[in-house]
């Protein structure tokens, strides 16, 4: 859109696109206040975490990461977050599809159900899962204090992300294009693979990135559910907390920095993947 030639019919649209203005004195003041607050609350404290981990030196960094307990926690966290994100990509897309394209009594209720994991306090989320999948499980399934509890907790808290990013895109998706593909002889599956999925790819990716980031950083829902057993069900966030409680802020900062880096890497990787899917369609 930015490369519109002057005579292109998209001129009216272009005028909308440049609907921004430069800063006035009062909006500049507003920006200053907002940036100050954002820096004090988010940027400076987070930078201090990274600085602290560098300050500790390469030595602390390596020692922390080669600590078997920490290494196991990181491995467990990343593995479970990956599995859960993969499931969310599939289930989240299917849920979004059903919510947008299907209609049946009680659909509105499902809309609320999707938001519950987000609205529920994480500690309560752990309690909720414990009631069905804990020692008193009416189903006879007890995952408490096992690796599966981590999986279950992450699946619960990350449920809304893919659904909520895919849903609006699917709503906007032009049915005409699918009908055109069908009229050109494409089967339902081909239409899905070549037309629908490529348009959804950016949204699915964004949702997956959020879901993974949330997954590796989860803490609250695991407290009551997983038992935080070292080498078994202890996740990275719990390690950080333990380090803080022991007064070892440098080690805590090291693990925190690793988590930040993993989240960043995941976001970049998923971006590349999404572009690839969108182009290949």
């Amino acid at each position: 859109m930015t490369v519109d030639t002057p005579l292109a019919p998209g001129a009216a649209r272009k005028r909308r696109a440049r609907s921004t203005t430069s800063l006035t004195r009062s909006s500049g003041l507003g920006l200053g206040i907002a940036l100050t607050w954002f820096s004090l609350l988010v940027l400076i404290p987070l930078s201090l975490v990274v600085i602290q981990s560098i300050d500790g030196g390469w030595q602390t960094f390596r020692e922390t990461l080669t600590n078997p307990q920490t290494a196991a926690a990181l491995r467990l966290t990343v593995t479970q977050a990956l599995i859960v994100t993969a499931i969310n990509v599939v289930m989240g897309t299917v849920i979004a599809w059903v919510l947008v394209r299907d209609s049946f009594p009680g659909k509105r209720l499902l809309e609320v159900v999707i938001d519950i994991p987000f609205a529920l306090p994480t500690i309560v989320a752990g309690l909720v899962l414990l009631s069905l999948y804990g020692p008193d499980s009416p189903l006879g399934v007890n995952v408490a204090n096992t690796e599966r509890s981590v999986f279950l907790a992450l699946l619960f808290v990350t449920l809304p992300f893919v659904v909520r990013t895919v849903q609006p895109v699917l709503m906007e998706l032009d049915r005409d294009v699918e009908e055109a593909a069908a009229s050109l002889g494409a089967s339902r599956f081909t239409t899905l693979r070549r037309i629908i999925l490529p348009s959804l790819a950016p949204a699915i990716t964004a949702g997956a990135a959020l879901s993974f980031a949330r997954g590796i950083s989860e803490y609250g829902s695991l407290v009551l559910l997983s038992g935080n057993l070292p080498l078994k069900t202890e996740v990275a966030s719990v390690r950080i907390l333990t380090y803080i409680e022991n007064g070892n802020e440098a080690a805590a900062a090291s693990v925190a920095t690793i988590l930040l880096l993993v989240a960043l890497a995941a976001i970049v990787l998923l971006q590349i993947l999404s572009k690839w899917v969108a182009r290949r369609g």
Binding site: V49, A253, A256, L259
Partner: peptide
């Protein structure tokens, strides 16, 4: 702006303590 969504609550706590 989206950063806080990707940061572990525990890291948030740590960051605020460090500051």
């Amino acid at each position: 702006i989206d950063l806080p969504l990707s940061v572990s609550p525990v890291v948030v706590g740590l960051a605020l303590l460090l500051a």
